[in-house]
Design a protein around this nucleic acid. Structure first.
Length: 416
RNA sequence: GGGUAGGUUGAGCAGGUGGUGAGCUCUGCUGACUGUAGAUCAGCUGUCUACGACUGUGGGGGUUCGAUUCCCUCCCUGCCCA
């Protein structure tokens, strides 16, 4: 049994390295998980230099210093209070030093809400065929021009400090759940731990928080070791990495059920990296997660799939060409306020740019309103019923199915 | 009217100078997408009694064992000249 780390309000162990106080990002749980154990869901507020973030919260992804197809006004309108951007992509183009010269990422993209930057660790996986990893770091072949790019924990921190995000994230080595042997998971996880320590030592910017990343794959003992190891370090928050991949919902839940109890008394936010489908989000909130990000709602929107209560509409389908109704009755988003399904269907067929903006507005509004609904239910004490009772869930969101082993929430009832 | 180039499965094409034309792109139909190399990718897109078979190269006729290919004739389209 690994002893509980001694933490102060920032999570720093007593014998850990000195960290500037007060921390730039603080987290306050306003509605703790109920003592009866009916759910581990909790609600709180994460304060950042660029505003408060209510949790549980979903962060839209803006890899290239833009949430694709949206401008900052759109982002505010859909309800975003924090977005995610990307270290690797911005370092390659336009270059973090350029962004720094131009006043930092917030000013560069004119976003006055909070920003969390991913470290480039995910690109260790996604650019897998174009990189090699050694103990010191990772060497990438640039996807833009083929040039060699060297990423180390120190460099990833330097880039994020230049970008000036509110929250920086450690450079890690995720492992693809099903493509890896136990030995590979151990190797990557232990390296991630060593890189985490290097990130802490490298990180200096006092107005920027730093989150560590828990790895450990799908095996409970490795997840547990990674959790307690990372929790013992003076991070401002803890990411849970290596999930939202090709694991089953049950496997993901099992991993979370290892991680979260080990952090039960930890005052820091828990952030599950990469999760984005509504049912997945609800289950992870139930498991005790506070923060999420994903490309999913924005990407599927650009590809014509609009999320509605009960499933999704593929607006490229012929049956919408004469459908005068809004995508979702009663939705407050830009698309639903003014336009019909028929119009959106036309825009997609004509490859009109407005299609991407309207569809993205809708799916992000849907996702963020869904999270707001979850927060309200947590605060009202009705969340456990929501998770377990399909009828309550349908009343709250109109969402029908939530079988933990069934990822298929795609039953379309919206066309009825 | 003369000349010339053509007519191939929704559209646009490739191919084939006597020995089994179902290939490509687009359109269309459907599905997928989870810390964004993604406004992307995948499957289907003549018919049927469907691991196979049939039909299909503008229409009609001819030569031939066999015609997209050779011959006759008609129709249609583009361009050039009158």
């Amino acid at each position: 049994m690994i002893p509980d780390p001694v933490v102060d309000a920032t999570g720093a162990p007593e014998d850990g390295p000195a960290r500037p106080m007060p921390r730039p990002v603080s987290f306050r749980v306003t509605t703790p998980a109920p003592v009866d154990g009916s759910t581990r869901a909790r609600s709180g507020v994460m304060s950042t230099p660029h505003g408060d973030v209510e949790t549980p919260m979903f962060m839209p992804v803006g890899t290239n210093a833009t949430v694709k197809a949206l401008d900052p006004d759109d982002l505010h309108e859909v309800g975003a209070s924090i977005i995610l951007s990307n270290t690797y992509h911005l370092a390659l183009r336009p270059g973090h030093e350029r962004i720094e010269r131009l006043g930092g990422l917030h000013r560069f993209m004119d976003w006055d809400g909070a920003i969390l930057t991913d470290s480039g660790g995910f690109q260790v996986v996604s650019l897998g065929a174009m990189r090699t990893i050694d103990e010191d770091g990772a060497t990438f072949r640039s996807h833009l021009d083929g040039s060699l790019q060297r990423f180390t924990p120190e460099h990833a921190i330097r880039v994020q400090e230049a970008l000036g995000s509110d929250i920086a994230v450690c450079f890690d080595q995720p492992v693809p759940p099903h493509a890896s042997s136990r030995a590979e998971v151990i190797d990557a996880t232990e390296r991630t731990h060593r890189w985490a320590e290097r990130c802490i030592r490298a990180h200096q910017r006092p107005d920027q928080a730093l989150f560590g990343i828990i790895q450990g794959g799908l095996e409970a003992d490795l997840r547990a070791v990674s959790t307690t190891t990372l929790a013992a370090m003076p991070f401002d928050g803890l990411c849970i990495g290596g999930l939202a991949g090709d694991e089953t919902p049950a496997q993901r839940r099992a991993a979370l059920d290892v991680v979260v109890p080990l952090l039960a008394d930890d005052p820091r936010p828990r952030y599950l990296m990469g999760l984005g489908s509504p049912m997945d989000l609800m289950d992870a909130v139930d498991a005790g997660v506070d923060l999420f990000d994903s490309v999913l709602p924005a990407r599927v929107a650009r590809n014509g799939a609009l999320w509605v209560p009960g499933g999704r509409l593929n607006l490229r389908n012929a049956r919408f060409l004469d459908d005068p109704r809004p995508v979702q009755e009663g939705c407050r988003c830009r698309a639903c306020r003014s336009f019909s399904r028929a119009y959106l269907a036309h825009l997609f067929r004509a490859d009109e740019l407005l299609a991407y903006r309207l569809a993205t507005c809708h799916n992000l509004t849907f996702t963020l309103d869904f999270m707001a609904g979850i927060r309200a239910h947590i605060r009202a004490g009705t969340f456990p019923r929501l998770v377990r009772d399909e009828r309550a869930r349908r009343a709250a969101f109109g969402i029908a199915a939530m079988d933990p082993d069934d990822r298929d929430t795609q039953v379309v009832t919206g066309a009825a």
